[in-house]
């Protein structure tokens, strides 16, 4: 790693001020960023550790909305039961030691095309809360590793409307355990949302044809007549575009069945 300074602010205001420094980079749990720095793929002058910001820790339910602080670990989300499909998703990210460090804000800020949390946020129509504004999930994800975050902006919390039923199905790439395809299905009073991770060159996306079909008939058979266009799906040594497109439909069906 190139060397850098580490700053440990205690409040969001201090963190935002620290992020104003030239070449400053926010550090969540570091489970992606530290390996990236080791490969010298980034050379920040300063890491601003968000772990010590008390206002960004923990989670709480307010009516039908679950608010999760940006520095909350996957392990904490996994142990909470207020949004079961989200906790189940968190309980299968990485491995136990990674879940003890990695944070929801870090995952969403990085927006890895095979990460799990983006699928949950997009399928739930979550709101990404930053130190300056609120961003709807539909506006937030802008492509592989690309988000609506501005330079220096910090994800302080994420608000999830809790659905009537939901499920996440991940088809893991056997070596890395990242999602080869992951599908999050969430059923709300006003319709069903389906978000897919791992599959597309554009990062997480909504499968709108499936949403329309499932909003009328919430069963796996509603998907029977649908096909997923392999155009722009990821092709790599783990799976071809057509294979991923096929998996999207299979995993969506499994998620609907499991959601009940």
């Amino acid at each position: 790693m190139y060397n850098f300074d580490v700053e440990k602010p205690g409040t969001i205001a201090e963190a935002a001020a620290a992020m104003g420094a030239d070449e400053a980079q926010a550090l969540g749990g570091g489970q992606t960023l530290i390996p990236t720095l080791k490969q010298r793929l980034a050379s920040p002058s300063k890491l601003v550790s968000l772990k010590g910001v008390a206002e960004m820790q923990g989670m709480g339910k307010d009516g039908n909305t679950l608010r999760i602080g940006g520095a909350t670990t996957h392990a904490t989300v996994a142990a909470d039961g207020s949004y079961p499909a989200l906790s189940a998703l968190a309980s299968h990210i990485g491995d136990p030691a990674v879940r003890n460090r990695g944070t929801i804000g870090g995952s969403l800020a990085n927006n890895d095309p095979a990460a799990c949390y983006p699928a949950a946020a997009l399928a739930s129509g979550a709101t990404i809360v930053t130190n300056t504004r609120q961003i709807s999930a539909d506006d937030y994800f802008q492509g592989m590793f690309d988000t609506a975050l501005e330079e220096g902006e910090i994800i302080t919390a994420v608000s999830f409307p809790i659905p009537q039923a939901a499920n996440y199905q991940k088809f893991v790439q056997p070596a890395s355990r990242f999602a080869l395809v992951g599908v999050f299905v969430a059923k709300y009073a006003d319709g069903v949302r389906v978000a897919v991770t791992g599959a597309s060159n554009e990062g997480v996306f909504r499968w709108t044809e499936a949403e329309a079909a499932l909003s009328t008939n919430f069963s796996a058979s509603a998907l029977d007549g649908l096909t997923v266009d392999p155009d722009n799906m990821i092709t790599d040594l783990h799976g071809a575009a057509a294979y991923r497109a096929h998996l999207v439909k299979v995993m969506t069906g499994r998620a609907v069945t499991a959601a009940g």
Binding site: K8, S49, N100
Partner: peptide, 23 residues
Amino acid sequence: GACVVHVDGVAVKSCTMLAAEAD
């Protein structure tokens, strides 16, 4: 996982945590 230690009672990979974070 050869580097797993416990920090504040939970398992972490000590090769993916900065010493400064463990202050």
